[in-house]
């Protein structure tokens, strides 16, 4: 069963003529233990969407169910309890500057009314989980961005939530730190069986840790599916834009004045496919000469994902046959000229 179920969610800011509709009917569901990504350009409404999940934002209409319970129907007290079952981390960390790392992690425990004598042990356990035991007594001002986010994660996990909401959690961090935080989130997710919602404007982040993804544009979900599927055959222009940005290839060869001598192809190889002697087969089976313009292997979570841009030289008829052969194998191929 879905742990998060969103139905016909709409949200407008302001009233009357000045009303701005930021979410225009969102439907999505996140399964228990899933890492669900929401990607979109800045201003698409991603933060508003995630904030509706723990009701930091009140939806204008539509419903959000957590474990089958409509969050709009909760009393203040029930809402506070529900929020404790959902940790949240933020782009700007939002730590208490007046408290040490340990003090910050203790805050949600105090708020949940945990026995004071049990708090220190739980705090050290959490700091250890995020690899910050040695910084317990440091104030946020003395920590690096990555360390602050680790405190944020420890704090979010304090009350054993089942859901972790991440709103651009790595957007303020450099690439190395981003990678280490993503690894941490991924590890913890597996270890604790958490359901994670990852909001990001970077497809790279989604690729790294998400199982499924929703692509948002102007308050709507324009594409949704497993990350592998969405990534290997993006349908919506916005999705293509994100994918292109990562592959930095494809039509740009043409835009940059490259004159293909044969058929210019972009082939996406997924999983086992990456290990196949792909170019060799084109030579052996069709007598063609593939010129490899770009080859790139990446991972979507744990699945290897390769992209080849090739200029397929040789007999035109044979080339068409080869393209059909590639398609029949179930490999995504795009003819760029």
């Amino acid at each position: 069963m879905a742990i998060i179920e969103i139905k016909g969610l709409r949200k407008s800011f302001g009233k009357g003529d000045k009303a701005l509709e930021v979410l225009r009917g969102i439907d999505l569901s996140v399964g228990e233990g899933e890492v669900y990504g929401v990607v979109g350009l800045s201003g698409a409404g991603k933060s508003t969407l995630v904030r509706c999940i723990n009701r930091l934002e009140r939806p204008s209409s539509g419903q959000v169910f957590i474990d089958g319970k409509d969050v709009m129907s909760l009393s203040d007290r029930q809402l506070r309890d529900a929020r404790r079952s959902m940790g949240m981390i933020f782009q700007s960390f939002n730590l208490l500057s007046s408290r040490t790392a340990a003090g910050n992690v203790a805050f949600p425990l105090e708020a949940a009314g945990v026995d004071k004598t049990l708090i220190p042990a739980r705090v050290s356990e959490l700091l250890e989980l995020v690899g910050l035991s040695d910084k317990a007594a440091s104030y946020p001002a003395q920590l690096s961005g990555g360390q602050k986010q680790r405190v944020g994660i420890a704090r979010a996990l304090a009350n054993n939530p089942r859901i972790l909401l991440c709103d651009e959690a790595t957007s303020a961090l450099d690439p190395q730190t981003t990678a280490s935080i993503l690894v941490l989130i991924s590890d913890i997710q597996k270890r604790l069986g958490l359901t994670v919602v990852v909001i990001s404007h970077e497809m790279q982040v989604i690729m790294e840790i998400c199982d499924r993804v929703a692509v948002m544009e102007r308050g709507e979900v324009v594409e949704e599916g497993s990350v592998v599927d969405v990534f290997s055959s993006p349908k919506h222009p916005v999705t293509r834009g994100f994918v292109e940005l990562i592959l930095k290839s494809g039509s740009r060869f043409l835009e940059n004045g490259y004159a293909p001598r044969g058929r210019l192809l972009r082939v996406s190889l997924i999983g086992e496919g990456v290990q196949e002697p792909f170019a060799g087969e084109l030579v052996r089976l069709f007598g063609l000469s593939p010129v490899i313009l770009q080859a790139h292997v990446d991972h979507i979570k744990d699945t290897p994902f390769g992209t080849l841009v090739i200029d397929l030289l040789g007999d035109g008829g044979k080339a068409e046959e080869a393209i059909r052969w590639i398609r029949e194998k179930g490999t995504a191929v795009e003819v760029l000229n």
Binding site: R80, M88, N94, L95
Partner: peptide
């Protein structure tokens, strides 16, 4: 920063807290 207050809200803190 308003985010700090929202973070506290997201942790289920009451207004008094």
């Amino acid at each position: 920063p308003h985010g700090v207050i929202e973070a506290a809200q997201s942790m289920g803190a009451s207004s008094w807290r």
